[in-house]
Write a protein that binds this DNA or RNA. Structure first.
Length: 216
DNA sequence: TGCCAGGCCGGGT
DNA sequence: ACCCGGCATGGC
């Protein structure tokens, strides 16, 4: 077993032992996963929850209902998520594609194989690599590893990736050593977020009782 | 009170 | 192929 592989598995065990299964994605349906994935771009999940709660309260959280809204109306509902004007546009870009190319049928879109789905998502303005991979993994259950700010922060501090490594470079560390396993990728990313939120803030050290502290 | 959060785009170099 | 400013609310 390669050195990286052993480390990645040890990290996983340490986080899993500390926190247990995370049960991701925090959303009830594939559609809700997609909306949440776009809304959480550079935004804390607690703010996204408020926006999604608004949509649910108004019975708007369906493809048809959201598609029928104008961007400005949608923006008003998702205000708490921040960047509400750009995000309203991005949500509409996704919905426009869903209705124009797939008849508004989400399961038809999600039925595509992983590479084709990822490629189509990336072709939508407002969906980048992390959002696309989140949707492929957590809405379609295909094994794409999700790399986020916490992943780069934690694994560069542990010197498993360079500080300035790009998205694909970081992603390959995981896919080449663990993959492809949707359940493992699912739990691993969720554990990284859980760990990062409490023990790996941007400014510094704050490691505290982080389960990965012993490996620093 | 500032700083930060589960990114991404568009324009400039 | 990178680099950077812009986008915005809510929590600590």
């Amino acid at each position: 077993m390669k050195k990286e592989e052993a480390k990645l598995k040890a990290f996983y065990s340490a986080m899993f032992n500390a926190f247990g299964p995370q049960g991701w994605w925090p959303g009830e349906t594939p559609f809700e996963v997609i909306i949440g994935a776009i809304l959480t771009q550079n935004t804390s999940w607690s703010n996204v929850e408020k926006a999604i709660a608004n949509l649910k309260k108004e019975k708007l959280l369906t493809p048809k209902r959201l598609h029928a809204l104008k961007a400005g109306e949608l923006a008003a509902h998702i205000r708490p998520a921040g960047y509400f004007n750009v995000k309203a546009k991005r949500l509409k870009n996704f919905l426009d594609r869903l209705f124009e190319k797939h008849g508004g049928n989400l399961s038809r879109l999600l039925k595509k194989d992983a590479p084709a789905l990822r490629e189509e998502l990336l072709s939508i303005n407002g969906i980048g690599p992390e959002t696309a991979d989140s949707i492929v993994l957590y809405a379609a259950n295909h094994p794409e590893f999700v790399v986020d700010a916490y992943t780069k922060r934690i694994f560069s501090r542990h010197k498993l990736v360079k500080i300035d490594a790009g998205y694909e470079e970081v992603k390959s560390l995981f896919t080449e050593n663990l993959g492809p396993d949707a359940q493992v990728f699912n739990e691993y990313h969720a554990l990284i977020v859980r760990t990062g939120k409490y023990f790996c803030k941007n400014r510094e050290p704050l490691c505290g009782s982080c389960p990965l502290k012993a490996y620093l």
